[in-house]
Computed example of a mutant assay.
Amino acid sequence: MHNQLSHFDHSGNAVMVDVSRKEITKRTAVARGQINVSPAVIDAVIGGTSKKGDVLGVARIAGIMGVKNTSALIPMCHPLMIQKCGLDFTVDKEKCRIIAVCQVKVDGKTGVEMEALTGVSVALLTIYDMCKAIDHSMTITDIHLEKKTGGKSGDFYFSGETSDND
């Protein structure tokens, strides 16, 4: 792994990375995150009784829309032609949490990590929005890149450990 920041020029100005000379390769990314909720929220999600409708169905669509619009939200992200996006949820009633996993695929010159992370984030925020009438104390946690494949830097698999920058 290298520590050189590619989004700054020699004068320290923020710039979009020039990918024009890079080869097109198959790239994938998977991101994961969770929202911790109350038993009442879990029951509403499972039972389909939220006043705003199908919580996970709407969150899935919102997450996919987030993936497709990442370059409009993150200033230095390149617009990408997304070829596949999937968003799945696991409802863990015992631990009162909903886990979101977003997978994104593209053939391109730059990776899709930010798209997968945005998809998970928007999906979890949508769950919060749709359930806040039941309980405002939900917490969104553990959003991270689970894995990525392709590109010059190669594959990455989350080990559960964070790196020290000292």
Rank of each mutant, 00 (worst) to 15 (best):
F8M: 13
D9Q: 13
H10Y: 11
S11N: 14
N13C: 10
A14N: 08
V17G: 01
K22W: 02
E23P: 13
K26R: 14
T28L: 02
A29I: 07
Q34A: 06
Q34T: 02
I35M: 01
I35G: 01
P39G: 12
A40M: 13
I42S: 03
I42A: 05
D43C: 07
D54W: 05
V55K: 03
L56I: 08
R60Q: 12
K68D: 09
N69A: 08
T70D: 09
S71N: 13
S71F: 04
A72Y: 07
I74C: 06
M76I: 14
M76E: 03
M76G: 00
H78A: 13
H78P: 12
M81P: 12
I82F: 00
Q83A: 09
K84W: 02
C85Y: 00
D88H: 12
T90G: 03
D92N: 15
K93F: 01
K95Q: 13
I98P: 04
I99Q: 05
V101C: 13
C102M: 09
C102K: 05
K105Q: 13
K109P: 09
T110E: 04
A116Y: 02
G119I: 09
S121W: 00
L124S: 08
D129C: 08
K132G: 06
A133S: 14
A133I: 07
I134R: 07
D135N: 13
D135T: 11
D135V: 08
M138C: 15
M138I: 08
